[in-house]
Amino acid sequence: MTAPHGQEVDYAEPAAVPRERRRRTPRPAGPLWDGPARTALKVGCWVVAGLLALSLVVPLVSVDETGADSPEDAVAQLLQGIVDIDPAAVLAVVDPEETADPGRARSAYERLSSRLLRVGEEVPDEVTAVLLAAEAQLGDGVDRRSLATLAAVELTLADLELDADSIGSGPVRVVVVDGAIDVVLDPGRLPAGSGAGLEAATYSMPLAEGWRADGSPVVEPFLTTVRRDGRWYVSLESSGDDLLGTSP
């Protein structure tokens, strides 16, 4: 083929740039570093990887110490776990005989939550709406919407005061003498759409008063704790039996 100025060009060949000139930076000629330092680096990486793997596996296979040092501590930890919406903290202080059978623990909790009711000051509509939505969603299992709904509510445990009341040689009742759960709702945190019409709200739920069991007169709130292997746990079944009467 002939170029316009008459010079012949072979287009089958790539542009005539010498291969050695394509490399912008020449490879250095020096030797790669080796020796004990490099071996230590390689071994060190695998050792650290192994230690990290252990740090992940050990918590999964080991049995953490659960329960509390005293009956009051067990109830305080349970209430704090509820306020933090932290299932691990809650389960750590519930009677292991009950948590070993998830159905048993769940039915004991449902019995308490459905029959032990609050009377007195009304909860703001905004707080009720969000908590009901969260409860309904949580009832069908945790999903993204229920997580988002609960993320809009800030719960705080304030001025908790407990008093242990021994009943016989075994279980100990822990009476809630004072304290409140403060609820702050920030509708701006709700997922798009679900916050429509809701305004910021605060509510303080006193824990020591306003409880009624199945239409009966107001009851003194307490939880029953049991001792297992030297540690104290809250028994949901015993609490239900003591507050509501022995279940059939």
């Binding site: 992940l56 918590p59 999964l60 953490d64 933090d84 919406i85 932290d86 299932p87 691990a88 903290a89 389960l91 949580l138 945790v142 229920s146 997580l147 988002a148 709904t149 609960l150 993320a151 809009a152 509510v153 800030e154 945190r189």
Partner: peptide, 15 residues
Amino acid sequence: HGVAAGTSPLDGAEL
């Protein structure tokens, strides 16, 4: 915030 705000993936796996 909200559910499991104090729970790590390891705690979750344990649960």
